[in-house]
Amino acid sequence: MADAALTASPGAGVAGRGRFAARAARAVWPVLMIVGVIVAIWYAACLPMNVKESLNQAERAGAVIVPEGGQARRDASPWVLMAQNPGHLGGVWSQDRPRLPAPHQVAVELYETTVGMALAGRAFSNRSLFTHAWVTLSATLLGFGIGTALGILLAVGIVHNRAMDMSVMPWAIASQTIPILALAPMIIVVLNSVGISGLLPKALISAYLSFFPVVVGMVKGLRAPEAAQLDLLRTYSATRAETLWKLRLPASMPYLFASLKVGVAASLVGAIVAELPTGAVAGLGARLLAGSYYGQTVQIWSALFAAALLAAALVGLIALAQRLVLGRMGMAR
């Protein structure tokens, strides 16, 4: 688009736009193809996964199935069953509790528990995914905010204090190789036993998970200014605080946004996992757990997709903020 704006002739703009569209299409088609292949494989995989339940259902409805009786089919290979009963496979995509729900079943469930319930005026009832997504999202955002703020503070301290740098930094890096998520159940239960429950324990786990990526990224970012730039500020006799505000912090923005993207995804995972050990009643993690207890596979899959959409939206929002901020600062790539 930029080259189109530079040329004066009116036709060039159109040609530039055409080229832009062509480039966008070139980028989109392969992605659509891959997504299409995945959906096709998904539909095909429903056949062997759901064939036994589907045949049982067909037999109860009066169809003749080879071999007869669910008992005889229990240990049979799904491929053999599919070959022997080609006429009775329609049910694999419409089971109530399939081993693998078909994509459209998940889509319908997602629609019914979000838009459908909103249209019925029950957008925030207990069955609505909006309720559960909000419970998880609020913990994620609170934790992400806490973790990011503390992370930036610690990074500023590390950059300005050599003793702190040498003491804390190796541990901050090492802690990234540790499965911190394993602490989640204990934090929840311990905080519960001292009377803190609800949003805060989940937010603390989210904060913990987003904390370290932000520290490591921000230390890198605050050290990004070149020696010449730091020297220039010294010739201005700038104080350390001025150097921080006018040079180090602006220079660290690209690093900050990169670690924010990692951090927000980690925060969401933290909030979801934090809902598992207490048997929480609300939240996307609670939906996953309840679905796995009661064999409600469609519910699990729709909670999973809701979580994925939420993660994509959060990362997308940060990417948008990144483009706006870095664009305004003249740092856009």
Partner: peptide
């Protein structure tokens, strides 16, 4: 970037 741990209940079922 997705919370893939969420697939755990499905895979445990399978």
């Amino acid at each position: 970037a997705l919370p893939i741990v969420g697939t755990a209940p499905i895979l445990v079922m399978w």
